[in-house]
Design a protein around this nucleic acid. Structure first.
Length: 735
DNA sequence: CGAAAGGCTCTTTTT
DNA sequence: GAGCCTTTCG
């Protein structure tokens, strides 16, 4: 073993074992060799991981640069680094910490050339990848309606996760669609190649291949990393699994931390078997289970346990805590999503009013991003501050992508995707014809569009106006590129925004001009952090970081305001008060998950993740009726609710009853008593019909829409105004 | 050539 | 309801 034995004298410094419980201590101080830490929710996982890293260094078992720590978000990596630095009171900059993708990118940039990878490769994000696939499908004359490009992307991505080569993918194809996807991939890879680009999956796949085919490279990394730690191991995919195996192959000091009950990313290739079969892969592995929870009350833990324990094939474990008792879990039904939102607002205000909590202590979780809308409307109307996590993502906004595309083109003229994104933004009077001409000419001469641009004067059949326009564009990019060699990144961006006309272009946009410009400025602000770097280098690493950035990474400690967030993104966070909305069959568990047992199991884990975010109070809401993509649906309570023992649940303490204002208050008792709506709906009302409603009096039907299970009316009442109502619910009499 | 309107599909989660 | 693509119109 390359490291000093574990009997090395302890270096001076903090007592790293103080305050740790016995299993935590065992994990931190474990001897060399494979180590599996089952870390339940709130069991101090990050603490154990950081203390172990610090311990290894403090004990002299490892130098900082010999440690590799892999996380799933940049944020987690940052936090881990700063905590290790705190513990050791030294700069831990030389520890390799980062996401799988960031680490792979780093390796490929340094050592990818033997595998034919250009040091200056660009990273294609989701959007880039999609447009490339669309282009391919266009060439293949595939109808995007029959074969959704998104599904093709998905299929290719899964194949890469599984480390399948294009050939292997083709022979593994079982359906016509999969065959087409495999074919599309071949062409897609060619485009990537041509653009010196790698997509997310490539980062992992190419690293694994590099290690397979160039043993000397692998060996160097194996020797270097005497200790490898992996966080969230339950969410690793095949490629990540193999990469870890390779890197830790020599010293076998592999420490993985995870919780099979919190594996929620199967849809993007995560394979829960990676953690469940760790013992099988490493028979000499030491296993530590962290089951003491430092977050929630015992009631919340018990409720969560009864939901998760239904899953077969889970490692046996159960969380416990010193925090006995606590309020019961509140389960409540509201009439619809508006009332649900009102219930959240009201209860939040009550909690804050009582002085026990601040709004920042409260999180509202939901299954799908679309659910945040009803909530936002209510919160805005009531003037309650909130921060919405997710939704339209910063790095995927048009203006952000435009500016990034410009920067990419400046950094790498071969990036044809960036080229085509900005060539006519803002408009440069280039029509389809001119651009086709350019592309055609480039192809014919085996050039990239940019190379063709450099010889635009030789092109025949190009309108003089277009030729001038293209020439101007080329000169402008060249000017900014020249500047990028000697000026700070922010100055480069300013010059770009000015000279490209993009600034004027954005400002000229109507309604959202301000917001868009604000986003551009925010990007500029992010770029300013790279001003310390050498010109050119700043641009390079900015693009690098941005490509691997996600929105959770910038999730700051909010000073105030409720947090609105999806169940997926909330993993790893905790809040004193948690509302989970839409606990309904079809929504959660989501209907798309119901066709396979594995899908349902994953939904259940998602429920478990959500429930275990709560420290003190947990509210589970479901609605009787919900607008789902257009029409109204009547939903049954989620099966997960039924799994919670009644003694852990509080009857709704009048939450919905007090909430509904008169106009949206169909008494819940009445609803409950009503028989389920018939499956076959017959239209009973027609525009023009005069009707009478118990509460609202007389009115005239404006519109009737049949949904699968109900008839929905828009009625103008003489006194109460225009209302939308469901025939099955409203007692409506035809006059 | 470009903007506007209309029609279509798809609505789970995202490093 | 939204986004994307196509068609249409100026």
């Amino acid at each position: 073993m390359a490291t000093p034995s574990s009997s090395a004298p302890a270096a001076a410094g903090v007592d790293l074992l103080a305050g740790l419980n016995p299993p935590q201590r065992a994990a931190v101080t474990a001897d060399d060799g494979p180590l599996l830490i089952f870390a339940g929710a709130g069991s101090g996982k990050t603490r154990v991981l950081t203390h172990r890293i610090a311990w290894l260094i403090q004990q002299g078992r490892a130098q900082p640069h010999e440690v590799l720590a892999v996380t799933f978000t940049n944020k987690a990596a940052r936090e881990m680094r700063s905590r290790v630095e705190q513990l050791l009171n030294l700069a831990a900059g030389s520890i390799w910490m980062g996401t799988f993708h960031a680490i792979a990118a780093r390796i490929l940039r340094r050592d990818g050339s033997p595998a034919g990878i250009d040091r200056r490769f660009v990273i294609y994000d989701e959007g880039d990848r999609l447009s490339a696939i669309k282009q391919v499908m266009n060439e293949m004359r595939l109808d995007p309606k029959r074969y959704p490009p998104g599904s093709v992307v998905e299929a290719i991505s899964r194949a890469k996760d599984e480390l399948l080569s294009p050939t292997a993918q083709a022979s593994a194809a079982g359906t016509h669609f999969e065959e087409l996807a495999a074919q599309a991939r071949v062409r897609y890879e060619a485009i990537l190649e041509q653009n010196h680009a790698l997509d997310f999956d490539d980062l992992l796949l190419r690293t694994v291949r590099l290690f397979e085919e160039h043993e000397d490279v692998l060996e160097r990394y194996q020797k270097r990393f005497t200790y490898v730690m992996v966080d969230e191991y339950q969410d690793t995919n095949r490629a990540q699994y193999v990469m870890v195996k390779q890197l830790a192959g020599r010293h076998r000091n592999l420490c993985v931390v995870g919780d099979d009950d919190q594996s929620i990313y199967k849809f993007r290739g995560a394979d829960i078997r990676n953690i469940l079969s760790f013992e099988h892969d490493y028979p000499d592995a030491k296993i530590v289970k962290l089951e003491q929870n430092y977050r929630s009350t015992q009631r919340i833990l018990d409720a969560a346990y009864h939901v998760i324990k239904v899953n077969p094939n889970r490692a046996d474990k159960r969380l416990w805590t010193d925090r006995q008792g606590g309020p019961k879990v509140v389960v409540a039904q509201t009439y619809d999503e508006q009332e649900e939102a009102l219930a959240v607002a009201q209860e939040a205000l009550r909690l804050v009013g009582d002085g026990d909590y601040r709004l920042g202590d409260i999180a509202v979780l939901y299954r799908t991003n679309a659910q945040s809308r009803a909530l936002e409307e209510v919160l805005i109307r009531r003037g309650l501050p909130y921060r919405l996590i997710g939704g339209p993502r910063f790095y995927e906004r048009r203006e952000v992508k435009d500016v990034l595309a410009y920067l990419r083109l400046i950094a790498n003229p071969q990036d044809t995707l960036a080229f085509s994104r900005v060539i006519n933004v803002p408009r440069r009077k280039l029509g389809e014809k001119s651009l086709f001409q350019l592309g055609y000419w480039a192809d014919a001469h085996g050039m990239t569009p940019w190379e063709a641009l450099n010889r635009v004067e030789e092109m025949t059949g190009l309108a003089p106006g277009a030729m001038a326009s293209l020439g101007d564009f080329r000169d402008m990019i060249n000017e900014v590129r020249a500047a990028s060699q000697e000026r700070r990144l922010v100055e480069v961006i300013d010059l770009l925004l000015l000279r490209s006309g993009y600034e004027r272009h954005i400002q000229a946009e109507g309604a959202d001009a301000q917001e868009r410009w604000a986003n551009v400025l925010e990007l500029r602000g992010l770029a300013s952090e790279y001003d310390g770097l050498a010109p050119g280098e700043g641009l390079q690493s900015f693009l690098e970081d941005v490509a691997l950035m996600s929105d959770v990474d910038s999730l700051e400690e909010g000073p105030q305001g409720m947090t609105l967030i999806t169940l997926h993104m909330v993993k790893g966070l905790e809040f004193p008060v948690v509302f989970m909305l839409g606990m309904e069959e079809g929504l959660f568990p989501h209907s798309r998950s119901l066709d396979s047992p594995e899908g349902l199991e994953e939904e259940r884990r998602l429920a478990y993740v959500g429930m275990t975010r709560a420290k003190d109070r947990l509210y589970l809401f479901h609605t009787f009726r919900r607008h789902l993509w257009g029409s109204a649906t009547l939903n049954l309570p989620s099966r997960f609710l039924a799994d919670i023992p009644p003694e852990l649940v509080d009857a709704p303490p009048g939450i919905p009853a007090g909430v509904s204002n008169a106009e949206m208050a169909p008494a819940r008792a009445r609803e409950a008593a009503r028989p389920a709506a018939p499956l076959e709906v017959v239209q009973r009302f027609f525009p023009g019909d005069n009707v009478e409603h118990k509460l609202w009096g007389r009115g005239k039907v404006l519109k009737s829409t049949l949904t699968r299970s109900d008839e929905e009316l828009i009625v103008r009442f003489d006194k109460a105004g225009i209302k939308i109502l469901a025939v099955s619910l409203a007692s409506l009499i035809k006059l």
